[in-house]
Design a protein around this nucleic acid. Structure first.
Length: 503
RNA sequence: GCCCCCAUCGUCUAGAGGCCCAGGACGCCACCCUUUCAAGGUGGAGAUCACCGGUUCGAAUCCGGUUGGGGGUACCA
């Protein structure tokens, strides 16, 4: 069997979309699994909406995910790589026009001079008559003389492909046999605009054929376009690739995932601290399964297991909760250096936003990992989790400082005692978690306090929050001086017993 | 409207005639661990397999219909 070739053909008219990323992933996995080639082609024929910035976002996003292609442009506005260059549709226009010329010469296509107003009127009439909208064929039988007259009058025709009556059938890789009567595809369709630029339906077919694609794996929204493509492949005498249509990714209300109702830009997920492994893992499992009970899988592992047989037919609702769970799973699996490096931009962001006053160095971060790694659902949670370590002026809320069962005076007393206990112990103990705990427990016991209440008061005094990593590890990370200073500050924030007005 | 696709716990899914009065995961609840929060462990609630009819000794699995949902209907991609 010859090598399989498949592709992702994004259009740089928007940022990399979750759906595009998943289609790219499935094509990538299929190519890896079958030992084939995965190609990236930019469909930039919609000049009005395409931008280099979007191109950059798309290519950058796919690189970030680790979905690498064997052929195609590697960077926005960069050079192409591969035997079928160029891989930018716009640069292939001469080829498209040449092929269109063949179709015209063979009378498989014809110029159409209908105005937008005429076409609109046709559509309205059909709608009123409860008919499927289709091109009525007004220009289908124009003689050469009639065409020449219109051209002479300055009219520029769009090129329409002649759709033959009949039924188009294909065996879809994920859905099995599908047949569609060509009477239902809207009549002769435009393949080249009146300005000479090719349309999507035409350009994809020429490019897919030129680039020797064997498998077209794309979204379900293309099912009704497939007959047009097959007709074109046949008219052009190109070998027909296999088609497979993936289920759509859905909004919670089960409509096609959209920017309006869901977060769709990959860049947003990156900015929120999702890691590539989790995103890839999650996307692979949206509409596909291993057929086993494995679910935490790397790109490598997915590449070895992927198959079209286990692709689901029904659409899949995007479930952020599950993505977050997988994200936690993968963050916990990252090795120290890797995690530290990935945390860096998020810490920088905390600094830029003024939420912390300095950046920890890698070693400081490394020491923190044992208590931080399993508590991060996303990388952007680092500030919330331990940002208090890098804040100069911590001012805990006095109301939060007082444990539930205590009053302000008791808390003040306890915090002062804790400060003394710690300060007295210095020299006798090492500043380590398991050495800090016993004296403070003894203090609580001696005063008849529940250890948990004392610890909570200390926790809030030194971190400003009630939910933190383990207390004694936190004190170690904070250091002796700052621990004592923060305890002292907290005591000052609380009224002494004599200051509390009698009830 | 017309054409096409789809239909298993709230969600993602396993299941390709008997192993299923349906298994796993997320989420939820409880308990354990525990100084808080996580993580982890254990257990639980949660699906008459959309509905109706057929085929069969036997159907979530095959067939037909119904209903529901979705997608497409451009000189966008």
């Amino acid at each position: 069997m010859t090598q399989t070739r498949d592709r992702i053909a994004p259009s740089p008219t928007g940022p990399l979309h979750i759906g595009t990323a998943r289609t790219a992933l499935f094509n990538y996995l299929f190519a890896r699994r079958t030992g084939g080639a995965f190609v990236l082609r930019l469909e930039d024929t919609d000049v009005a909406r395409s931008t280099v910035a979007f191109e950059s976002d798309i290519l950058g996003g796919l690189h970030w995910l680790g979905i690498e292609w064997d052929e195609g442009p590697d960077a926005a506005a960069g050079p192409d790589r591969g035997p079928y260059a160029p891989y930018r549709q716009l640069q292939r226009m001469a080829r498209h026009q040449a092929v269109a010329g063949e179709l015209l010469a063979g009378d498989l296509a014809y110029p159409c001079y209908c105005t937008p107003a005429e076409l609109e009127a046709d559509r309205k009439a059909q709608e009123a008559a409860h008919q499927a909208p289709r091109y009525v064929g007004r220009c289908a039988q124009l003689t050469l003389e009639e065409r020449a007259a219109k051209e002479a009058a300055g009219q520029r025709g769009a090129l329409r492909f002649r759709v033959k009556p009949g039924v188009v059938t294909w065996n879809d890789l994920v859905r099995g046999d599908i047949e569609i009567d060509t009477a239902n595809i809207g009549g002769d369709f435009v393949i080249v605009r009146s300005d000479g630029t090719p349309l999507y339906h035409f350009a994809v077919v020429v490019d897919d054929a030129d680039m020797a694609m064997t498998h077209i794996i794309r979204g379900e929204d293309h099912i009704s376009n497939t007959p047009k493509h097959i007709l074109l492949f046949e008219a052009l005498g190109f070998p027909l690739p296999a088609f497979g249509h993936l289920p759509l990714i859905l909004n919670p209300d089960r409509t096609k995932m959209s920017k309006r109702k869901s977060q769709t830009a990959i860049a947003d997920y990156i900015a929120q601290g999702f890691v590539r492994e989790a995103l890839v893992n999650y996307l692979a499992l949206l509409g596909w399964s291993t057929g086993t009970e494995e679910e935490v899988l790397s790109l490598e592992e997915l590449s070895g297991r992927f198959d079209l047989e286990h692709v689901q037919k029904g659409g899949a609702v995007f479930d952020r909760e599950r993505l977050e769970w997988l994200n936690g799973q993968w963050i916990r699996r990252l090795d120290s250096d890797d995690l530290i490096a990935r945390l860096e931009p998020f810490l920088q962001r905390e600094l830029d936003a003024g939420r912390i006053d300095r950046l920890p160095d890698p070693d400081e971060l490394r020491a923190l990992l044992p208590i931080v790694q399993e508590r991060l659902p996303r990388l952007d949670a680092i500030g919330d989790l331990v940002g208090f370590l890098w804040v100069d002026d911590l001012r805990p809320d006095p109301a939060v400082l007082v444990p539930k069962r205590w009053d302000a005076a008791t808390t003040r007393d306890a915090l002062a005692a804790a400060r003394t206990t710690i300060s007295d112990a210095i020299g006798a103990i090492d500043w380590e978690a398991d050495e800090l705990e016993p004296p403070l427990r003894a203090l609580a016991e001696g005063r008849g306090w529940k250890a948990g209440d004392l610890f909570m008061a200390i926790r809030v005094a030194v971190t400003g929050r009630t939910a933190t990593p383990p207390l004694f590890d936190t004190l170690v990370a904070l250091g002796r001086d700052r621990t004592l200073a923060r305890l002292e500050r907290a005591v000052e924030l609380l009224p002494a017993a004599s200051e509390v007005p009698a009830p």
